[in-house]
Design a binder for these strands. Structure first.
Lengths: 151, 151
DNA sequence: ATTCAATTGCAATATTATTGCATTTAAAAT
DNA sequence: ATTTTAAATGCAATAATATTGCAATTGAAT
């Protein structure tokens, strides 16, 4: 479930990272925070079509560098962005949770609670982090499919 | 280690999938099979710069559809391609192994032997498959780093 | 209120991907 | 072996996506 955040949370967040509180930035933040899934770059663009494409790129990059959001490519290679959980630090993301990519609605769910079982790598490989992806059908689409099947 | 394959293996492979044995296709296959890592689209393009870009796209798509290769996006969102292990079927890939993405050389290693520990998804999610990514330093780059550090 | 630096938006450019079509090539048929 | 046919390639055009430079604007500090 998306955390409930208000305007002031976002302003504080920007302050904390020495970013100016501008309207495009606040809008991007509130859009992302309102959703339970990650938001794809195309979606952001079409919803915020009055914000310049380039500005959007720059906002997303800035947020990512500051550790406010994290970027995750879905299984089709499109970039998706989601708010970082509190323990993300600048330049060092902790998004080692499960990314569930629904093949029907394309949404990417960040399932924070699910942590990965430990994996041992072959000799010589050292790792900074893991990311687990799953693809399949999300609850919403499962329901939808069941509903249409009944008709 | 890359399997040793010869020209005839590739011709058989194409035959099996009712694809004509053309020179561009055979070259793509032999390039991919000669490497122990997946090959990025940019690399393919620059090495095979005499093959038309469009042709390359079409070859890769055809191979992927037939289950000859699989496509994996590295952590920067660039497409990488690797030969499928024998148990890939058309339209249904079995690439549920670990994809190790080296942050130094950018190479993607398909570590087939490493299978994933079972993961239980939250209620409502049904999955078709998992993909585990790791990023870090591969054996080659670790050696390289050690060598330069000594100097 | 004024100043200054950060941020935005626009224009231009670069990179990456897709589509249509004429030409070529591999395989099938004769 | 030659001809025929369908598949595959390469080129040109276009679309979609990403990046860079710069002038105008805006938020925050003075």
């Amino acid at each position: 479930m998306a955390q409930t955040r208000n305007k002031f949370d976002f302003e504080d967040l920007l302050d904390k990272h020495h970013l100016k509180k501008t309207s495009p930035r606040l809008r991007v933040l509130s859009m992302m925070a309102s959703k339970s899934t990650a938001t794809s770059q195309p979606d952001l663009e079409s919803v915020m079509n009055d914000i310049d494409r380039v500005t959007l790129y720059r906002i997303l990059n800035a947020f990512e560098e500051k550790g406010i959001i994290h970027k995750v490519f879905d299984l089709n290679g499109t970039a998706n962005y989601a708010m970082c959980s509190s323990n993300c630090e600048e330049h060092h993301h902790h998004d080692e949770h499960l990314h569930f990519n629904c093949t029907m609605c394309k949404n990417v769910y960040c399932l924070d609670d699910l942590h990965l079982p430990p994996v041992t790598l072959p000799e010589g490989f050292t790792t900074q982090g893991f990311t687990l992806y799953a693809n399949g059908t999300c609850p919403k689409c499962t329901k939808k499919a069941a509903a249409t099947a009944k008709v």
